[in-house]
Design a protein around this nucleic acid. Structure first.
Lengths: 135, 135
DNA sequence: ATCTTAATTGAGAACAGATGTCAATAACTT
DNA sequence: AAGTTATTGACATCTGTTCTCAATTAAGAT
């Protein structure tokens, strides 16, 4: 069996996950170490995987980024800045309907994802200022 | 400068890409080797990256899969089987409008992606037959 | 409370996709 | 045909993630 016991490690990881904003596993590992430096990298990856399998968190596969984790379970889309890496949740906009599809093209759908890639407001403003380059 | 010359390697890779169905770089490497065994793995990754940057192909970051490449440039969604790995293009369904968004949440959007994960028709049928398990 | 046992963890090795290095090669320009 | 420079091949390297396995520990049974 698996994921049956309530351990300090899981509690800390879950707390860090709720506090962080679409972190990668490595980012979470760093913040988790501040609470308890004995937690290992493998545990962070393992527990995150279990949480994802259990539907407690969502895995995000964003273009050009390591896997990120989203503690928000309600259906929503994501904007992803290709310059600074920031990820913004997008609720509304009519995307919930698309994400709620349960059958399409003969498939039985278990999860869905809508992702927009571009420049976030801050990076967009910074672009105009000088000789910056994308990416 | 970069991607200026018409080489045999690029021609073969582009041909294999058009013939294959959402292949990974490694799958493409295998099929490309059948045409010319001297082509190296690095060249396949390099050329695919250039094609993606030039908009000739799209990178697909599907859950639990290596990066795949899509030779179809028209906007469409994807279904992805978590059991056999198959990827199906989904044209229509009203997703084009969502994918055509150019500004959202203050972002300037350059690319977008809609992905459904689940069981494809074949795997769905196979599930009923015996004591199979998901993944 | 203590015992039992099986889930969980930590440390590090191992793996794999992807990228970097650099001399050799081959497309274009003239 | 010769020169310039993008491109390639072979291999090293990097890095996110998973695996291994003995040691630990949570939670139910006694």
């Amino acid at each position: 069996m698996e994921n049956k016991r309530n351990t300090e490690q899981k509690r800390i990881i879950l707390g860090a996950l709720a506090a962080a904003d679409h972190p990668t596993a490595s980012e979470l590992y760093e913040s988790v170490r501040l609470k308890n430096p004995r937690i290992s990298r493998a545990t962070v990856f393992r527990v995150l995987g279990q949480f994802a399998d259990d539907g407690v968190v969502r895995r995000l596969n964003l273009l050009g980024s390591d896997t990120r984790f989203d503690a928000r379970t309600a259906p929503h889309a994501h904007c992803h800045c290709i310059r600074c890496g920031r990820v913004t949740d997008v609720f509304g906009g009519g995307f919930e309907e698309a994400l709620a599809v349960s059958h399409i093209a003969g498939y039985k759908v278990f999860s869905s994802e809508i992702e927009f890639s571009g420049l976030c407001p801050d990076c967009l403003a910074a672009e105009g200022e000088g000789d910056n380059r994308y990416i």
